[in-house]
Each structure stands twice: as structure tokens, then as C-alpha cells.
Computed example of a mutant assay.
Amino acid sequence: MTQPPRIIETEPRGGIFAGDDPFALAAAWLAEAERTEPNDPNAMALATADPDGMPDVRMVLLKEIEPAAEGGAFLFYTNYGSAKGRQLAANPRAAFVIHWKTLRRQIRARGLVEREEGPKADAYFASRSLASRVGAWASRQSEPLSSRAHLMAEAAKAGARFMGAPPRPPFWGGFRIRPLQIEFWADGAHRLHDRFRWTRQDPLSQEWTVTRLNP
């Protein structure tokens, strides 16, 4: 049985920062943003690095915040042959930031990455629209493309091949970020923002140190 989170902190937190589970707190902030953000409240900027250490960043969609009872993680999906997929295969570490302008809040995190290629990935792929599933087969993500017409032709071929029921491609699936650090940030008057950083030593540990940071 998973032990409840153990929190070490020097200053009590209240209001929007209250709670002893950073994943529940992140889920609560996301749920609030879903009521206020006009587009893609689950959009996050994902940072990776290539084998030479050159950083890279792009927007992806956060699809699930796994609870602390499952170890706690942030899950997104992509083509494993994409630039980010190749970079994460070579260097399975990542960072991300989610910023909500309507709430004037953000969440930053960084940690270790593992693939999700099991039933959960199958179920999510099956939940996507038919056009999106066909598109996953058609696109050689991040590779040069001669024209949009060529891409559409590949999509048409994939649609005909699978007759309306494309399975999850073997080159497509999830990445799970198990954070070692999570920071919750809220805008403050005169740029005196509130920042609380949660830190743990192990990606499956439920012992967190929470520190208030200077803005």
C-alpha cells in the first residue's frame, strides 16, 4: 500500500497552495483553469535536451495527472520517432511549465521520464478521433515533408489500410514525467509573487520538502 505523503516545511501554506499532495493540487489548479482558459488549458511547454546537451522546447498537451497513489506523474503522448521522442530516449529527463493567464498562475516541474506503452496508451489512442488516429499513422513526425499534398495522400492511404479502425502504432505512445521538483507559482502585486517548490529525492518517494522561494 502506498504511504500517504510526508511533508517537511518551515512555513504553513493556505489558500490556493494548501494541501499535502502536489499531484492533487496540480489537478485542482488544472480543473479550475478548464473553467476559465479559452483554449487548451492542458497545454504545457516541454523542455528536453539532445545527446549533446542542446536544449529544445515545444508545446504538448498534458493528458493525465496520475495520483500519488500511483507514484505521481504527468502524462503526455507523442510519436516516439519525433525529435522529443528521440531526445527522451537518449536522455530520459524533462522539464515543463504550464501557464494560465486567466488564473495568473503556473506550474513548473522537472524529473525523470519513462514510456507508457501498455493498456493505458492503447485506451487513450482509441479515444482519439478517427482522423487523429489515421494522422498518427500518416505522419513521420519531425522529419522533412515535401508538401502538404504528400501528407494528405499518406493519410488517405492509412485510412484505406485500416478501414476505420486503426490500432495504436508501435511508434506512438506515452511519456510519463515523474517529477523530482514541482513549483507552484501565483502572481502577486508589485511582482511580489508567491512561489512554493516541492522537492523529493526519489521519483517514487512520497516524502516532500516544501520551500517558499523569493519571487
Rank of each mutant, 00 (worst) to 15 (best):
A43S: 14
D187C: 13
S127F: 08
A126I: 08
F76E: 03
A160R: 13
I16E: 13
E207H: 06
T48P: 08
D194N: 09
H193I: 10
A73E: 00
A26V: 04
R105M: 11
N91R: 15
F23G: 02
G135R: 12
W208D: 00
N91T: 12
P55I: 06
P215R: 09
K84S: 08
W198S: 00
E114W: 01
P179Q: 00
D56K: 09
E37Q: 05
A158Q: 08
A27C: 05
H193R: 11
N214Q: 15
A123S: 12
G164I: 06
D56S: 15
L213N: 02
P12Y: 07
I182F: 02
A27S: 13
P12Q: 10
V57M: 12
N42C: 11
A69D: 03
D50E: 08
R212H: 08
D122W: 09
W172A: 07
R58Q: 12
L61M: 15
P119Y: 04
R104M: 10
Y77A: 08
L88S: 11
G111S: 01
P41D: 05
A69P: 03
W208N: 00
A94C: 06
T36K: 14
A121S: 07
P41L: 02
Q181I: 02
M1W: 15
L62K: 01
G81L: 13
D56M: 12
P5H: 01
P144I: 09
N39A: 14
K84L: 06
P67G: 00
F125W: 04
K157I: 10
A123L: 12
A156C: 06
L192M: 11
G174N: 05
R200D: 00
L112D: 03
R140H: 15
L130V: 09
E64Y: 04
A160K: 15
N91W: 14
L180M: 06
D50C: 09
G14N: 11
F74L: 04
R133V: 10
N39W: 13
R133C: 14
P215M: 08
V210S: 04
P51G: 01
L112P: 05
Q141T: 12
I65W: 02
A28R: 15
P170I: 06
Q201F: 01
D20H: 09
T48R: 11
A136I: 01
M59K: 09
Q141F: 15
W208K: 00
W198R: 00
Q106E: 12
L192Y: 06
R128P: 13
W100D: 02
G111M: 00
P4W: 00
T78E: 09
D50H: 06
S82V: 10
A165R: 15
K63E: 05
R104Y: 14
G15M: 07
